[in-house]
Design a protein around this nucleic acid. Sequence first.
RNA 1: GCCGAGGUAGCCAAGCCCGGUAUGGCGGUGGUCUCGAAAACCACUGGUCCCUGACCUCGGGAGUUCGAAUCUCUCCCUCGGCGCCA
Length: 424
Amino acid sequence: MLDVNVIRADPDAIRTMLVDRNKPTDVLDRFLEADAEWRMLTQSSNELRKVRNAESLRIPKLPAGAEKDGVIASMREIGDRIKGNEERMSVLDGIREDCVLNIPNIPHASVPVGRDSGDNVVVCEWGERREFGFAPKEHPEIAEDLDIIDFDRAVKVAGSGFYCLKGDGARLERALISYFLDSHHDRGYTEVFPPVIVNKEALIGTGQYPNLKDDMYHLERDDLFLNPTAEVPVTNLFRDEILEKEALPIKYTAYLPSFRREAGRHADTRGIIRVHEFNKVEMVRFVLPETSWAALEELRNDAESLIRGLGLPYRVLLLCTGDMSFSCAKCYDLELYAPGKDAWLEASSCSNFTDFQARRARIKYRPEPHMRSEFIHTLNGSGLALPRTMVAVLENYQNRDGSVTVPEVLRPYMKGQEVIASRR
RNA sequence: GCCGAGGUAGCCAAGCCCGGUAUGGCGGUGGUCUCGAAAACCACUGGUCCCUGACCUCGGGAGUUCGAAUCUCUCCCUCGGCGCCA
């Protein structure tokens, strides 16, 4: 959520931003119109209230009689006018609220202007693509041959778009999660394990609601949602709090399943690249405003170090204005190379949300004791998303005989196992 | 799910029965005093705005009233007890 004062001060800048983001601008016009009328009515109501407050103090002092009755009658009329104002204002307020919740964050100056993912900028590429000496298989075949992912039976349990890890597949998943969490721990992150289910307030806080509401699982009876990313429960741990300045920065990491309906998506459904439920380890930072840009680079480095540790080739994209998600001011995507599919797979997004989420979730700090509180800045990054990391590991580490070598860094988590081989 | 107690400013409380427009303490900041500090004392310490001032704010919403933290209804949340339960 943007500061309404920023919108009022320079509506043209907001309009340009919406155009850069490839978004309609009518939301801005509706806001400005409703806001102008709202402000007019606010002033009018304030003046009426001023009269009422003054007269209400006089009333008990007046002797019973015609004058008192007259004042009471005119106060009754003023009360009606205030009520009339307020009815209109609550309509306008609803419009204002709706608009402001639907205006995305302002991109940082360093973000390239572009229309869609085709305009993202490759910042760097790391690692050597391996020479196989045979035709590398795609992950569904590898997994099928090793019997480490069961797609068909998972469909019985939950339907298409779900999968069941099995045997060394399940153990590899657990090893990856542990490796990620331990790495973050060593870099000063505190591990948390928040609720998987979140309420609407939390989703508004981080910006998934309302604009992504159709892509989330909704538990209607309790009006709760399955979290689409751990960013939601972790960031909202501090909703409605004023944090001690000394406590910042706060660095949290969490392993948590994430859920996405992926409504209307049908392409590319094979395998585990796009599924309804997936595991992810997330990093979330709560920082002082002046440190957030440096923190974004650190966060990205934290995520990259995991990939390097696994020895997977990857590249870093700087997302353009048209491809960035709603809440972020700047975002890097980390993409792993999958040789079987010969494709880049997004395994991490690292974003600085500046004060956008903090304003929605009301997370503040006090710059000086008893000075007025200010919004902090929030950031988050995946470190990393499990299924796509799994795909990259399987495809990059596959061997001619169909087995998969376990990356060295994961072996301590798999009781020293070096190879995943078929047990059939 | 049932019963009970609660939700007041950064924190803790009072005010509620009996309606008159936010009371105290803690913490904090500044000042007086001091070589300096402590103590003591004084002032300030929720938000918004078109800032000499005004308005708003007592969990949210609605109602009654000239006027609601206070009365009524409703919803939410927290804590405790009981029930159920992996």
